[in-house]
C-alpha cells in the first residue's frame, strides 16, 4: 500500500499507548533497568526509554522467544497423547519504539520460518504483531545499517514509522494495512500533513561497504585464511547470534516431569561446537574459524541464494555484545576490500 503521512504529538502518542494497553494489547518497548535497555512490557509512555540507540537484545523474542513450547505430551502406560500448541490464542502485541533495524530483522526471520513448510507458531506470533518503530536521531560506532540496505529512517518491516521532527511532535508514516488499522481506530490522535523530507531529523551514517560486494567476494574466499585470522580471538560463545534480530537457528529439546512433558524450541548458535557435532564424534565444522565463516556466509551468501535476501540488518548488536571485540562491520569491510 502507499504510505500515508500524518503527524502525532507526544501527548497523543501517550494516549495511543494507553489505548493499546486498555484494549488488552501487550505493548513492548525499550525499558532501561539497572543501566541496561531491553524490550519489556510497558503500561504508559513514561516507562519507555527513547534515548538508547540499541537495546542489548533485539526485538526478535516477540516472535521467536528464547524458549517456546512447540508441543506437550502425556505418557500413559502404553500410549502417548500429544497436545498441540493453541497458537490461535496468542495475544496481540505492539512493538513500540524499536529501531528501523529491528523492524527490518523480522523479514529475514520470517523467511526462515516461512518456506515450503510454514512454522505456524512463528507465523501466528508475527501476524499478531504490529511494529511501530522510531527513526534514529543518533548512531554509534557499531551501527552500519546504511551498508546493508537499511537506514536510520528506513520503513522496511515497520507497520508505522515515527520520526521526531520537533521536541513535541513526530512525523508518522503509515506503511502497512496493520498500521492503517491503528490509524483508523485512532483518527482523533493524528493530524494531516504532506510528506516531509526526514533527512534533517535522522542520524548521519556513512556507508562502509555494500552487501552486494560482500556477496560477490564470498564466491571466491571460502578457503581463504581470512577466517582463521578473523576468528582467532573469538571465544566461541553464542552472544552474537542470540542478540541478533535476524538469527533464527534453534534447538529442539524435550523436558519431562513425571508423565507429562514439553517439547521446546530454544535459540541455538552456529558458533557452538556442539551445534553440528555428529553422535559419532565427527564434526563438519570443527574449528571456530569454520563456524565464524558459516555465520558470515549464511547471512551474506546462503540466505541471498536461498531466500533472495540478506540476513544482516546492520544493528551492530553482535559487535556490542562480543566479549572479545569481534566487530562484524570491521570484518565485513576487510572482506569487501579483499
Amino acid at each position: 500500500m502507499e504510505i500515508i503521512n500524518k503527524l502525532i504529538d507526544k501527548s497523543a502518542l501517550a494516549t495511543l499507548i494507553e489505548r493499546f494497553t486498555k484494549s488488552g494489547k501487550e505493548v513492548f518497548a525499550p525499558v532501561k533497568s539497572k543501566g541496561i535497555s531491553e524490550f519489556a512490557r510497558v503500561e504508559t509512555i513514561q516507562d519507555i526509554d527513547f534515548e538508547t540507540i540499541a537495546t542489548k537484545q533485539s526485538a526478535k523474542s516477540l516472535v521467536f522467544p528464547k524458549v517456546e513450547k512447540i508441543l506437550s505430551y502425556e505418557k500413559t502406560f502404553d500410549d502417548v497423547i500429544v497436545n498441540n500448541v493453541d497458537y490461535t490464542q496468542f495475544p496481540e502485541v505492539i512493538a513500540f519504539g524499536n529501531r528501523p533495524c529491528d523492524a527490518a530483522g523480522f523479514i529475514p526471520l520470517d523467511a526462515i520460518f516461512a518456506g515450503e513448510l510454514v512454522d505456524e507458531i512463528f507465523k501466528a506470533r508475527l501476524e499478531k504483531l504490529t511494529v511501530i518503530s522510531i527513526s534514529c536521531k543518533k548512531a554509534d560506532d557499531y551501527c552500519f545499517c546504511t551498508s546493508v540496505n537499511g537506514g536510520p529512517g528506513n520503513t522496511t518491516g515497520s507497520d508505522i514509522l515515527l520520526t521526531e521532527t520537533t521536541a513535541d511532535e513526530y512525523f508518522v508514516e503509515i506503511v502497512t494495512e496493520k498500521g492503517k488499522a491503528i490509524l483508523d481506530a485512532n483518527t482523533d490522535l493524528f493530524k494531516d500533513t504532506a510528506a516531509i523530507d526526514k533527512t534533517p531529523f535522522l542520524a548521519k551514517l556513512e556507508q562502509q561497504f555494500t552487501q552486494e560486494v560482500i556477496n560477490e567476494k564470498l564466491n571466491g574466499i571460502f578457503e581463504s585464511d581470512i577466517w582463521d585470522k578473523q576468528a582467532m580471538r573469538c571465544v566461541g560463545c553464542g552472544a552474537c547470534a542470540f542478540v541478533c534480530p535476524a538469527c533464527g537457528c534453534f534447538d529442539i529439546q524435550d523436558e519431562t516431569k513425571g508423565k507429562n512433558g514439553v517439547r521446546h524450541r530454544c535459540w541455538d548458535s552456529c558458533g557452538f561446537k556442539i551445534f553440528t557435532l555428529h553422535t559419532s564424534g565427527h564434526n563438519p565444522r570443527e574449528k571456530q574459524a569454520q563456524r565464524w565463516r558459516q555465520r558470515i556466509y549464511h547471512k551474506f551468501s546462503y540466505q541471498p541464494e536461498q531466500q533472495k535476501l540478506f540476513g544482516c540488518v546492520g544493528c551492530g548488536r553482535c559487535s556490542r555484545a562480543c566479549p572479545s571485540d569481534m566487530n562484524i562491520a570491521e570484518h565485513l569491510k576487510e572482506i569487501a576490500v579483499l
Binding site: I112, G115, E116, D119, G248, C249, F250, I252, T276, Y302
Partner: peptide, 8 residues
C-alpha cells in the same frame, strides 16, 4: 525442513 540451521 531447513529452518534450524545446522545441517547445511
Amino acid at each position: 525442513f531447513g529452518k534450524c540451521g545446522r545441517c547445511n
